[in-house]
């Protein structure tokens, strides 16, 4: 079976900075794929090229057999890609539930509707998505009053609202307490497995990465220097050298054990 997402030979330069160099990988339905790498490695750039926010200089991105290279985000989304951003992007003047309703309104091609009021549209469905991410109680709070971790959860609900095939999550747990992180990552992987959604995510928190990823890509200066299962990556000498370091490797090991234990 063809992979859900296959990315090959992506290139991206910003002036003198190489943010992507021959980036090639693939992702299956229901799989959790993590990209790790130091700051400025090109992780967000990769997400943005897949999501359509940036156009790659070269290379191709194919989603479920459809070439989406260089398509604008709104089209990529219609083809089944939901995403969250490193800096959360929500509709700050709206309530939590309205944020999700917006995604549903768009999903149902109703953004130009001018007859009915928007507040009642798809409210039930939106509440259901919020319940999934544990935000049902906060449904009517203005989103700009939420703690940052909760905003991230709202983003996830928004991303899920269109029943995506692929989820892109750029640092989904930044700003959360450790407990919350594990819970959110667990939730994400449950949803992914249950609905066969592929998840591409990145995290600086190694517990989350090694605890939940099926496979890991290591990106340094725009280049993938290693790829494989968490165990492969952990034991990779090159990764140890340039990125994880000895202490990092041990932390990764510990995280893996805990995660397995929790299962």
């Amino acid at each position: 079976m063809a992979p859900l997402l296959s990315v090959s030979g992506l290139e991206k330069r910003f002036g003198g900075v190489t943010a992507g160099k021959n980036v090639t990988f693939s992702l299956d339905a229901g799989e959790m794929l993590a990209i790790i790498g130091p700051n400025g490695a090109g992780k967000s750039t990769t997400f943005n090229m897949v999501g359509g926010q940036l156009k790659p200089d070269a290379g191709s991105i194919v989603l479920a057999g459809v070439d989406i290279t260089g398509k604008p985000p709104r089209e990529v989304w219609r083809l089944g890609v939901g995403r969250t951003f490193q800096i959360a992007q929500t509709f700050v003047s709206m309530s939590v539930v309205e944020n999700v309703q917006m995604a549903l309104i768009s999903h149902h091609h109703q953004t130009r509707a001018v007859t009915s009021a928007a507040t009642h549209l798809h409210r039930e469905a939106a509440l259901a998505f919020l319940a999934r991410v544990g935000m049902a109680e906060m449904a009517d709070r203005p989103v700009n009053e939420l703690a940052y971790g909760d905003v991230k959860r709202v983003e996830l609900a928004i991303a899920l609202a269109s029943e995506p095939k692929l989820l892109l999550m750029d640092e989904p747990t930044a700003g959360m307490a450790p407990k919350e992180r594990t819970a959110l990552m667990q939730l994400t992987s449950d949803i992914a497995r249950a609905h066969g959604i592929g998840v591409l995510f990145t995290e600086h928190d190694m517990d989350s990465v090694f605890g939940h990823a099926d496979r890991i890509l290591v990106l340094v200066r725009g280049e993938i220097i290693a790829a494989g299962t968490p165990d492969d990556v952990r034991s990779n000498q090159r990764v140890k050298q340039v990125y994880l370091g000895e202490a990092g490797a041990q932390a990764a090991l510990k995280a893996r054990r805990q995660a397995v234990g929790a299962h």
Binding site: G51, G52, Q53, P72, P73, R74, W77, R78, G82, R83, F85, Q89, T90, F91, V92, S93, M94, E98, M102, A103, I105, S106, H107, Q110, T111, R112, A113, V114, T115, S116, A117, A118, T119, L121, I158, A161, S162
Partner: peptide, 28 residues
């Protein structure tokens, strides 16, 4: 005034709040 409250009005406001997010949920 009614327009402000319709999905069209909301969509405009959504795009104002975050054009990036709006684009990422399929809004032109």
């Amino acid at each position: 005034r009614h327009l402000f409250y319709t999905p069209f009005g909301y969509t405009l406001r959504a795009a104002r709040d975050s054009a990036t997010r709006a684009d990422a949920i399929g809004i032109d």
